[in-house]
Amino acid sequence: MRLIIIYLVGLVFGVGISISGMANPAKVLNFFDVAGAWDPSLAFVMGGALIVTFFGYRLVLKRQAPLMSTSFQVPTRRDLDAQLIGGAAVFGIGWGISGFCPGGALPALGTGRSEVFIFVLSLLAGIIVARWLQVAIVNRAPARIRQIEEPK
């Protein structure tokens, strides 16, 4: 039953990404082209997602636990650090250059377009390199810092 629900959630997500046009990099790139062929529809997609998230979190977090787990996995850190800001900057630059975000690229794999596969392979390589850098930085840190920041 759990696998069926996971499949259905993924299906709804993929259909939503496709209907909204987020699997089309031209749609995203035109949103960023404010001096040219600007397409404001991405703002409506983001606004819709923000509204659903705003009310959805309030509704779901009233429960004792999620349907498919024993507890909620809610972030506890609220500070902004270099890792968060740097990651967000790299994400935004990659999205602006390619027109793909990971959420839109995964359903777009079904199109069979080579640029989607290149993006996803680059995404995976970036994840591996970032993880490697994170481990390398932590291993070079003094023991007292390593104890606090060591990735799990």
Score class of each variant (00 low, 15 high):
113 R>F: 06
85 I>Q: 04
143 A>Q: 09
78 R>P: 00
131 R>F: 14
128 I>N: 03
27 K>W: 12
69 S>K: 13
27 K>A: 15
120 V>Y: 05
142 P>R: 02
114 S>C: 05
100 F>S: 00
103 G>C: 11
81 D>S: 06
51 I>N: 04
131 R>H: 08
124 L>C: 11
139 N>E: 13
44 F>H: 11
6 I>V: 10
113 R>G: 03
134 Q>S: 10
119 F>S: 02
5 I>V: 09
33 D>N: 13
104 G>M: 04
16 G>Q: 05
127 I>F: 13
118 I>L: 08
35 A>E: 15
78 R>Y: 10
117 F>Y: 09
84 L>C: 01
144 R>E: 13
44 F>T: 06
96 G>T: 12
60 V>K: 04
88 A>N: 07
10 G>E: 00
146 R>K: 12
15 V>W: 04
53 T>Y: 14
136 A>V: 03
108 A>D: 05
92 G>E: 09
133 L>W: 09
4 I>F: 00
30 N>D: 15
84 L>I: 11
137 I>E: 07
46 M>K: 11
60 V>Y: 07
140 R>K: 11
66 P>Y: 00
137 I>K: 04
126 G>H: 08
102 P>T: 04
92 G>L: 15
55 F>M: 04
101 C>T: 07
45 V>W: 03
117 F>M: 10
102 P>Y: 05
72 F>E: 08
148 I>F: 08
99 G>Q: 03
143 A>E: 14
89 A>S: 13
104 G>D: 02
99 G>A: 03
123 L>W: 12
33 D>S: 10
139 N>A: 12
46 M>C: 10
32 F>Y: 15
137 I>P: 00
105 A>H: 01
121 L>V: 15
84 L>H: 13
60 V>W: 09
47 G>A: 09
56 G>L: 00
90 V>R: 03
81 D>M: 01
102 P>D: 11
48 G>N: 06
84 L>A: 09
64 Q>E: 15
111 T>Y: 08
114 S>R: 11
45 V>D: 03
92 G>S: 12
36 G>Y: 04
63 R>K: 08
109 L>M: 12
47 G>C: 05
66 P>T: 02
68 M>H: 00
152 K>R: 06
109 L>P: 04
31 F>R: 01
9 V>A: 14
18 S>Y: 12
55 F>Q: 00
16 G>M: 04
98 S>N: 06
98 S>V: 03
77 R>G: 14
129 V>A: 12
96 G>N: 02
105 A>Y: 01
127 I>S: 09
142 P>A: 04
82 A>L: 14
76 T>N: 06
66 P>G: 01
9 V>Y: 00
40 P>G: 11
130 A>M: 13
92 G>T: 05
28 V>L: 15
73 Q>F: 14
44 F>D: 08
102 P>A: 02
135 V>G: 03
145 I>Y: 14
73 Q>V: 08
133 L>A: 11
125 A>V: 15
126 G>L: 05
32 F>H: 14
113 R>H: 10
87 G>T: 06
127 I>N: 13
100 F>P: 00
83 Q>W: 08
81 D>N: 15
103 G>M: 05
16 G>F: 06
120 V>H: 13
85 I>W: 08
60 V>C: 02
84 L>S: 14
145 I>L: 10
121 L>K: 05
28 V>K: 03
5 I>R: 00
105 A>L: 01
134 Q>C: 07
136 A>M: 05
98 S>L: 03
118 I>H: 07
120 V>D: 07
77 R>N: 13
112 G>Q: 08
26 A>H: 12
27 K>H: 14
56 G>E: 14
138 V>C: 12
